[in-house]
Amino acid sequence: MLETRLDTGRIRAARLVIDPLFLDTPLYRCEGLEPGLGCAVSVKLETANPVRSFKGRGTELVAGRLIDMGARDVVCASAGNLGLALAWSGRRRGLNVAVVASRSAPAAKLDRIRALGARLELVDGDFDQARERAVDIARGDGVRLLEDSQDIETCEGAATIGLELVDAAQPVDAVLVALGGGAMATGVGHVLKALAPGVEVICVQPEGAPAMARSWHRRSVVTTGPTDTIADGVAGRRPIKAVLDDLLQVADDAVLVREESIIAGMRALLDHAGLVVEPSAALGIAAVLEDRERFAGRHVATIVCGSNVDLDSYHRWIGAASIR
């Protein structure tokens, strides 16, 4: 029996609340990637939805439950994708959504948050400064604070990805999950360990934002200094203890990858899968590139978790990869 905050029954029920636009996303074997990686690779495409990331699964649950409670106002801190997803789910249900983000967050994400009608406040500093400001707003205005990974809806929404992986016709040996705050890793990990315990759950984080991976290895919260990675979606510094406790129950490993491997993974997904993705979505491919021997002869699935990327930055990164 898994001792986590998540519940498999609630996760199954979540599928009835989440807009079907976010469910049953494509999962397919991508043979074009395989010669360069040395293993069989399946891609779970979480970008084929209105917000172009997996975050909508969780915000659909949050927004639905707020309406059930009679609440109309919600605020969150976001690196971009959570705020975008909450703005979409909130607009659909008539919620007043406020999003706090770093001024340095990708402009493409910030522009889409504004376009969806959310109130956007920008702060100097990183995601953790945005989180502090969101807490202040929630306390001062008396509104619901949505905290990614801390709020169980964000984890159990993401966990529905795990149900779809388990139900897939072709089983896999390992699933590679981008690791930031931990909502997707704990959610998918919980389902796999409950329903397909033989599948290895491997979390992947950048070397330049290693807080949660270091915490997993140390088995206690490790807070780091400023992050240094292009993978802004996973660039937190202060892990949440309750989330780490869940992750310790469901993850088999947490690995760190270099920036050049992330860029190489983005390039591989473009060249061999026709996918333009944000850096966080390439972490799984980066992990295989850095340790081909570990995955040789195995069938791995990687969750392509977002495609809200600043195109100028993307072209610069991919161009640099081409030069190398």
Rank of each mutant, 00 (worst) to 15 (best):
L270C: 02
A301G: 00
R218I: 00
V243I: 11
R294C: 04
I263Y: 05
G297D: 14
P239L: 11
I285H: 04
E278C: 06
G274E: 07
G236A: 10
T223V: 15
D253A: 14
G274V: 08
I240S: 03
V234H: 09
G297F: 03
I263W: 09
A268L: 15
C305K: 01
I240Y: 15
A286D: 11
F295Q: 08
R292A: 06
L283T: 10
A287G: 10
V234P: 07
K241C: 13
G284M: 08
D246I: 14
T229H: 07
A231Q: 13
A268R: 04
F295M: 07
R258T: 14
D253V: 03
T227Q: 11
L283C: 09
A235D: 05
D253F: 04
E278K: 12
S307T: 10
Q249K: 12
V255H: 08
D252M: 08
L289N: 05
G236Q: 13
A296K: 12
D228P: 04
D271Y: 00
L270N: 01
N308E: 12
H217V: 15
G233E: 13
G265C: 08
D246E: 11
G233Y: 09
V300D: 00
T229W: 13
S280K: 02
C305M: 10
P279K: 10
P239V: 05
V304I: 09
V276H: 01
D291Y: 00
V234F: 13
S307V: 05
T229Y: 12
G297R: 03
F295G: 09
G297I: 06
A301D: 00
A231K: 14
T223C: 08
S280T: 15
V300T: 03
H272I: 02
D252N: 10
